[in-house]
Every structure is written in structure tokens, then in C-alpha cells.
């Protein structure tokens, strides 16, 4: 028997889409190795009502282990999963990705002396075991992980696991009372989910002009805004985490692992290197154009049209040319 345990993240009364994908994946793969998929949820009791928890059955969860505990922190969840696995002997733990998934999966690996693989893009059953594909070296190779020992931990890349509805709202809810380890209680959430800056909609845009550190400073974003303006209609400006963390552009415009996932008709990157955590949020865009002065920038590996050059020279002229074209 090879059961799978999945951590399901929730916020504001809803489950995280990547966590639901992890349940779908966990249930499908567990079935192939003769097991079932259970879920773990941790939070304030009121935020995790019976109906909400039972609804995880829709994605394939058999049981939902529910523990009262702090939200948004990794180590309390490690305590809960450690307890569930020690009592029920799950063979694999799967996470949908995201920051917390990485932290919980790694902490759990330490706690239970387990193997862990991150950034996994596919899981397969082979000879009664699960193996995981992990792209490495800037996605130019895929390394296949196999697990030894009692527990194998799989942390997915975001958007790797598709959400599939397979059942009804009948997952069994099992309440746990967990005594948290002292070091889990040393961290306390002060504020969670602060948005910082204007509320912009990038998910609905047909054209996205995305800016990165190459724009130089907050003022550099005006060039991106003017270009988006030249396209007119449904065009918007998006950003990388590097520039959002630096305060150059609002968080709502961020694409990537801890930002939005977008698939516009046109995505045009200006001064963006194309890190994996950015790529996962935009790779399904229909047309990808990149302007970067470094010919070795990873973004050229997945762009349809790449221009090696200085954006300070190119963007203003491109804006002008598109305006003229539109006017004519």
C-alpha cells in the first residue's frame, strides 16, 4: 500500500489552486501504486469548516486531516504532517509548489529523514513506485528522482499539476489535536497577504509589456507604460519579483511563482532575465518577445522573437513606431 499525503493551503475561505492540483495528481498516482490520497489542512477552526474540507473529495481526497493551528507558516504544518505520517505510514508527500510548499516539504524531509525533490514537473508510477521529473540547468535537462527509505517528498513546480474533479463532496474529515514543537511556535504571523500598491488587472490583458531590473529604476517603468499605451485597448504593464520587491512597481502586476499566471496573446519582456520562477507564470503566452542586452539571458531560450540590445534605445522608438502604425 502506497498512500499519498498532500498539504492543502488555504486563504480567505478558498483553497489554493496548486494545492488542489496536487490532490488530483496525488489521487491519480496513488491509485496506480495501490494507495489513496489524503489531505492535511491547518488553520483557525472557523476558516476550515466541515463543508469546505469535505469538498476536497471532489479532487480525489479520501480523508482530510484537520488541525487547529497558525496559518501561513511552514513549521506547524511539518508538525502535523509528521504526526499523520507516523500514525498512518504514507509513502509519499506531494506539494503543489509555492513558497510554503517548498518550506514544508524540506522541513518534513529533515524531520522524517526523507528524500525530497523540488520543481517537479511530472510524476509517474514505475514498478510500483513513484518517480519524479525535475528540470535542471535552466530547464535544459530533466533529472529523474527515485526514492529510497520510507518516505519520498515531491514538491511540484507551480502550475505543473492540473486540477481535475473526480468525485463528490464526501471526503472524511478527521480532527487532530497536535502539540506543536517549541521551535514552530517561535515564529508568529504579524500580517499576512499585504498587497502593496495599486490593484492592477494583468490577468485579463491581451498584451502585456513586462518590465524587469533592466528598466533601471521605478521611472524606467514609464517607458513600459508608454509602450503598453501605444498598443492601446487591452494592454497592461507587468513586472518581475525583483522590481516588485524593490518597490518599483505594485505587487498586483507581478508574474510568476508568487505572483500571477498569465497567458496573453502577446507578452513583451523588457530587461527581464527569464528566471524559472518568472517563466512558470508566463510560459503559456501565445507570443513571447524579449529585449535584453545579454545574449546569454535565459529568456531567449523560450522567446519567439528575441532582440539583443539596449532597451533604452529600443523601447522609445518602438513605442513611436507602433503609435504611427496605429494612427495610419
Amino acid at each position: 500500500m502506497s498512500d499519498v499525503l498532500v498539504y492543502v493551503l488555504h486563504y480567505d475561505g478558498a483553497f489554493n489552486k496548486n494545492s488542489l492540483g496536487a490532490i488530483s495528481e496525488g489521487a491519480a498516482r496513488a491509485a496506480e501504486v495501490g494507495g489513496a490520497c489524503d489531505a492535511v489542512v491547518v488553520g483557525a477552526g472557523a476558516s476550515l469548516g466541515d463543508d469546505l474540507c469535505r469538498s476536497l473529495g471532489r479532487y480525489g481526497a479520501r480523508r482530510v486531516f484537520r488541525a487547529e493551528g497558525p496559518e501561513g507558516l511552514a513549521q506547524p504544518v511539518v508538525d502535523v504532517m509528521d504526526r499523520v505520517i507516523s500514525e498512518h505510514g504514507h509513502r509519499y508527500a506531494i506539494f503543489g509548489g509555492g513558497l510554503l510548499g517548498f518550506e514544508i516539504g524540506a522541513g518534513l524531509a529533515a524531520r522524517r529523514r526523507a528524500g525530497v525533490t523540488m520543481e517537479v514537473t511530472a510524476v509517474r508510477a514505475q514498478d510500483g513506485e513513484l518517480v519524479a521529473d525535475r528540470p535542471i540547468l535552466g530547464d535544459t535537462k530533466i533529472s529523474v528522482s527515485r526514492y529510497r527509505g520510507e518516505l519520498g517528498i515531491i514538491i511540484g513546480r507551480i502550475n505543473a499539476f492540473e486540477v481535475r474533479e473526480v468525485g463528490g463532496d464526501q471526503a472524511e474529515v478527521v480532527d487532530l489535536s497536535v502539540e506543536y514543537s517549541p521551535w514552530s511556535m517561535q515564529a508568529e504571523m504579524v500580517t499576512r497577504g499585504e498587497q502593496r500598491g495599486a490593484d492592477i488587472d494583468i490577468e485579463g490583458a491581451d498584451v502585456l509589456v513586462a518590465g524587469g531590473r533592466g528598466l533601471g529604476n521605478a521611472e524606467g517603468f514609464q517607458m513600459a507604460e508608454q509602450l503598453a499605451g501605444a498598443f492601446g485597448g487591452n494592454a497592461a504593464v507587468a513586472a518581475t519579483r525583483a522590481v516588485v520587491d524593490a518597490g518599483w512597481y505594485p505587487y498586483a502586476a507581478q508574474i510568476g511563482q508568487t505572483g500571477k499566471t498569465v497567458s496573453p496573446k502577446l507578452y513583451l519582456a523588457a530587461g527581464i532575465s527569464g528566471a524559472i520562477q518568472h517563466k512558470v507564470g508566463m510560459q503559456s503566452s501565445e507570443n513571447i518577445v524579449a529585449i535584453n542586452k545579454d545574449p546569454n539571458a535565459p529568456i531567449f531560450e523560450f522567446s519567439d522573437l528575441g532582440v539583443v540590445g539596449d532597451l533604452n534605445k529600443i523601447l522609445p522608438k518602438l513605442t513611436e513606431a507602433i503609435r504611427t502604425r496605429k494612427a495610419g
Binding site: 493551503l9 486563504y11 480567505d12 489554493n16 501561513g72 507558516l73 509555492g98 513558497l99 510554503l100 517561535q186 515564529a187 508568529e188 504571523m189 504579524v190 500580517t191 499576512r192 497577504g193 499585504e194 498587497q195 502593496r196 519579483r241 516588485v244 520587491d245 505587487y251 508568487t258
Partner: peptide
């Protein structure tokens, strides 16, 4: 402070 899945979190840690 750090950015997690839903925006910026502020955490106090001993």
C-alpha cells in the same frame, strides 16, 4: 518581511 503566495507577510521570530 517576505513575499508568499498571497502577497507580503510580516513575521516576528524569536
Amino acid at each position: 518581511e517576505r513575499q508568499a503566495e498571497y502577497g507580503y507577510d510580516t513575521v516576528r521570530v524569536k
